[in-house]
Design a protein around this nucleic acid. Sequence first.
DNA 1: ACATCATTTCGTTATTTAACGAAGTGATTG
DNA 2: CAATCACTTCGTTAAATAACGAAATGATGT
Lengths: 114, 114
Amino acid sequence: MDNIVKIFKALSDPNRVRIVQMLVNKTLCVCEIQEILNLSASTVSKHLSILKESGFLVDEKSGKWVYYRLNTNTNDLAIKQLMLLLPLYLNDDNQILSDKGKLNIACKDELCCI
Amino acid sequence: MDNIVKIFKALSDPNRVRIVQMLVNKTLCVCEIQEILNLSASTVSKHLSILKESGFLVDEKSGKWVYYRLNTNTNDLAIKQLMLLLPLYLNDDNQILSDKGKLNIACKDELCCI
DNA sequence: ACATCATTTCGTTATTTAACGAAGTGATTG
DNA sequence: CAATCACTTCGTTAAATAACGAAATGATGT
């Protein structure tokens, strides 16, 4: 019960839902996510730790950077299914579309890291 | 986005998850739910209104009583799927099993209403 | 009509949450 | 080795949430 409630709590904030959707088929470092969300680094870090703690994300250090990606290898059924279902619910969400658009530009122009 | 976040927020409280699971294949009045959760009537009423507002429940007045049940006729894909998936995640949860046990006894003995 | 019962609404309190900036950590670069 | 960069942790503040009891609402039964 605690586990499933923690999972739903993780998804009950719009900025965290945006993060999860940004990371579909992508690996991003904290500063890229910060750029899109337009929040302070500490706030973004906190959101990422909640998503990691609940099982949605894994991180990987590489030099100065910490990269986050979806925990696609999870054994948790709820996490696995919700990661698949979320995009269906948010495919046509303007915020999510806008985030993805910005991300592509940001990547092309190397807006943030490297 | 607001809609899906509202849905996850509704499920991000253990008492509300318990309510949803109690109502699987059952219709219950507020006082029965109150009996199981062991919370004040006003608190239970608030939880029910959040679940109703987010689309999980519908209510029906009948005399003195208000009956709540799952909104199985919803058009909302997320609500529909989450109602199906939740029991899979909580099948072996002790709290949920205990609630269902108490509910059967309560119904037999007409512990609460009627 | 009146008392009672089931439920909701209101006002309050304690806890949790989201946000920030400042300070701390650890790796990289000059 | 000092400065910088990416990120996290800490401490604070404002807002949201969960809980309660008291009062309001609305139907039932006497």
